[in-house]
Design a protein around this nucleic acid. Structure first.
Lengths: 194, 194, 194, 194
DNA sequence: AATGAATGAGGGTTCATTCAT
DNA sequence: CATGAATGAACCCTCATTCAT
């Protein structure tokens, strides 16, 4: 499982890589510092040398996830010209991320560490919405998308993608998601095209 | 907020009602027995009189949620004849539940207490899938739905509904969901109809 | 060693009795909750059931010491009429307390738990001063004490008494202090009489 | 605040100067090596290069305090001929030290680091007593002091001086102590003269 | 001589659970 | 049935100390 976020070369990187996996698998509160220490093959002291507290570690991790997600979206989705291309690219992005680093995507979809985010939103519900709304606004302006309530269009685009990712993460879809990218994009398009 | 599950007349009911709210708001592990005692205005002894342990309380709650959800689905969704009616009924069910008891729906969508469910699936990913798959299988057999990969159709139907519920729960949609039921059903239908 | 403060009948009492001894012997910071648990023959949980934290336990103890000290002073010293009688009573009080409960007196003289008192004064330097100053003001008004700087008189009275208590506590005086009460009072009187 | 003990020119000096201040302000156990490092503007490595452990650092400091105190007493108090002169010189010594380096005097009066001194005596109760007892023995032999119990005389002389120093250190006397030296000596003398 | 990353024992504290009343 | 005082394992975190650089 390649690590999107951190290198395992450094102690700090190993701790962050262990933390995201454990936070996703067990949740923030169930994950103990000893868990992280065992998984990252470091020591209690090393963890506290690099992060002032467990909360601070979670905050740092959360910021890195957001930053990496936005970087990828800005690089592969937003530059495209048409709404359909952008939707396709967004599907491709999340589907390929799912296969490349399922912990990263699981974190995007589900993590809402209340110690980190006070509005209790997941990355997908806060930063992900920005991407979707941008696709919708632009697509409507160009007449590519039908004149539907924004929230409905947002629910359609992000809901279908996220649900398929979830089914894959939960093991209810066993084949790699990119093989379903065409069909997924087609279904979304049927629901949102002008 | 009417309680779908339990009556607050009985001690046992008050405990379960407090538990689902606290579990949803804070998570199972952060919720302490003292929290539940304070919220339900009972006593430690009373909790342990009615439930053998915190885990058992969580298990009991989970079973009640599943049972109530399936009861409602079997009552309002499955009896209907056409795929479109069933989809509409499913939308109506989840949207009205969201307004009636947001804790109940939040539990359906997000709760995966590892102490209770070992496959780590939410009620929506386990029991909800059954409902969706039933709609799909029947709708395909009758030629009402297009001949698409089942997992795509499942993702479309459940994904759009769940995403809109989530946006409402997260405060990103402020109006009551039932006002969006028509448009939601329409969007789903565009994506899945034959 | 009779306990001036607390009864050892109750768990709470045993904890406080152990705490004052350990705080005096080792200091607040070196004294651990396990130390207190072992000495009071209770349990960690019992300590935290009765006191919300180690700091709160220290605060509670400090207040009890102050209250008991002031009660004794108000009962045995202040009611007396002449300055000489009061000085004699103050000597008697501290000397007899020293033999009765050396931990109590050692706490009076030396304890300055910064977690409890922000001005960093011992009970003797805060509450004890009140008693001494009262003796001085009244004795001067009646012409029994010589017209000397108040701080000098305060230093003489409290300094001589406290130093002898300290020498006894440190084992540099081995006989019971009350046998030295006459001579001590005489020396103080020579320095302060009109 | 001139440093009586150590020069801040050397790393070793800066460490010792920081240590005495921190030990007096917070106590030995609350003072951490990082505290000392920050205050002395050195590094962890430097501290452990110069001292084998925190205990060893405390021991070294304690020895320097004792040595400096005895040096000053032997230089300014003991050479004098009469008891009254010696008492006056002792008062002057402690009062001027208090103004010159309050940390040094506070250490003399209060520090009893159990890691350093196993009999749990302060410098004033161990080395200070020697000075006082010398004054008493000699003054009695010469008939300058009255024939009173040695411990009483010791309590009078050291008690009055130490108490005034304490009141000054605690901020309850705000003017420089040397202005009270005459009156202090006079009061002591009234209590001890033949 | 100097540095500071790494170590882990041991601190204060929480909380599920028990049981005498 | 109901209560809450008592228990102790296990949490997060601190800090004296080591050692490679």
């Amino acid at each position: 499982m390649p690590e999107l976020l951190t290198t395992t070369d450094t102690v700090r990187g190993r701790i962050l890589a262990s933390a995201i996996q454990l936070f996703v698998d067990q949740g923030y509160h169930v994950t103990t510092i000893p868990d992280i220490v065992a998984s990252s093959k470091t020591s209690i002291g090393a963890v506290y040398h690099h992060f002032s507290s467990k909360e601070e570690l979670a905050r740092e991790l959360h910021q890195q996830v957001i930053q990496e997600f936005m970087r990828q979206a800005e690089e592969s989705v937003l530059p495209l010209a048409s709404a359909k291309d952008r939707i396709r690219a967004y599907v491709d992005l999340l589907f390929s991320l799912t296969e490349k680093d399922s912990y990263f995507v699981a974190y995007l979809l589900h993590a809402r560490p209340r110690v980190v985010v006070d509005d209790n939103l997941t990355v997908c519900s806060r930063e992900g919405i920005e991407v979707t709304n941008h696709i919708i606004a632009d697509g409507k302006a160009k007449g590519e998308l039908r004149d539907e309530d924004d929230r409905i269009l947002c629910g359609v685009i992000s809901g279908i993608i996220m649900r398929l990712v979830d089914l894959r993460l939960d093991g209810l879809i066993v084949e790699p998601l990119p093989t379903l990218a065409d069909k997924t994009t087609d279904s979304i398009w049927r629901a949102v095209r002008a």
